[in-house]
Computed example of a mutant assay.
Amino acid sequence: MRTGLRITAYAAAVAAAFTAAYGVGTSVDSVSTPAAHSERNEHGERNEHGGKGHEDTGSGTGTTSTPAGLASTSHGYTLDLRTPRAKAGTRTDLRFTITEESSGAPLKTYAKEHGKELHLILASRDLTTYRHLHPVRAADGTWSVPATLPEAGDHRVFADFRPARAEEKVTLGADLAVTGAYAPDDLPPARATAKAGDGYEVRLTGTPAPGEPRELTLRVLRDGKPVTDLQPYLGAYGHLVALRAGDLAYLHVHPNGEPGDGSTKPGPAVSFTTTAPSAGAYRLFLDFRHEGKVRTAAFTVRTPHAH
């Protein structure tokens, strides 16, 4: 079955999606992520990528225009980050709970989305560092995951989850300070090609239209040749996270089509139908899996004001 993009509950008023790249150039961009990681998480446990659901995560209810991830409390839940500080270049065990406001107790029951109970996105405020992590939950409801962040500065952590028996997903955000010598980087320029290490590159094409759905296509190549055997990662051939420059409003989208639907090919192209929530600059992070490793390609895109 072909599935169109089902977006993070980003709010009905903003059409809840992200747009294609506007005015991109032709040079190469990169992002500070691990160049590739195997299908075992940082605890040495194997990541299971089950499920075909392609609903996206978010904290919108359809009754507010507030983008997801800007608040640490929403929908009756609070992200309590127990390790609000880390040291640049040093492995840190990030610990946190999702607390139920009604009882003050940690949430212990979750519905799995894309094979996981919770997805943790971590990004620097200048959008040059990005991590997509899968923490482990202890019996008392405390989540933990190791991470090593390369540069000092302000970071943002996003917890992306759906409580058991809840119909809506929730995205909560909290600030993480990384200590050390700090000089913020400028937002990388808008470019149409991004490297992902080991000869991989991703080419971005698409025409933006704020307030109007348009198709965005990301084409994966290795050593200049199209990759036609992408492997499913969390139930899809590609996952796209977009963060708005300035406030890091969060948007998680999934591709048009899914593995096994009879029409979606395993590369080289992965397409998304997208609409901009607002004009401005965004940073896109595409995760894809090939030969057992997950890689990330990053792009800066700019959307124009609606005419």
Rank of each mutant, 00 (worst) to 15 (best):
G206N: 03
P34Y: 10
P255F: 03
R91V: 06
D80C: 09
L286P: 04
P266K: 07
G224D: 07
T78S: 13
Y250F: 15
G224N: 09
A139I: 03
G267I: 02
H43K: 14
V301A: 02
H254W: 05
T3V: 12
G51P: 06
H252L: 06
G224W: 11
T8P: 00
H132P: 04
R295L: 09
A147F: 02
A17M: 07
P259L: 09
L94P: 02
A297L: 02
K195L: 03
T128Y: 01
D56E: 08
E55L: 08
F161T: 03
L172E: 03
P213Y: 15
G257T: 01
F161Q: 04
V14R: 06
A177G: 00
A279W: 01
E100T: 10
A192N: 04
T64P: 00
H290P: 00
P106F: 13
G206D: 02
D247R: 11
G238Y: 13
I7Q: 10
L230E: 01
I98L: 15
V220H: 14
D126T: 01
T57A: 13
L120D: 00
T128V: 12
A111D: 15
G69I: 03
K108I: 15
T8A: 15
A164I: 01
T207L: 08
L70V: 13
Y200F: 14
A21T: 05
Y237D: 05
A147I: 01
E45A: 14
T296K: 00
R283E: 01
A88E: 12
G58K: 10
P277K: 03
T128W: 02
L284G: 02
D247S: 05
T193D: 08
A12W: 04
V178H: 04
L149D: 11
F299Y: 05
A9E: 04
Y237F: 14
L248Q: 13
R125E: 13
R219L: 06
G23M: 10
G267F: 08
T97R: 15
R203H: 08
E42A: 11
H119P: 00
G262S: 10
G246S: 08
S72Q: 12
G62A: 11
P213S: 11
V24Q: 12
H239I: 07
A174S: 15
Y250V: 01
T228E: 07
G141E: 05
P208I: 06
G180D: 11
T61K: 07
E48T: 07
L81A: 03
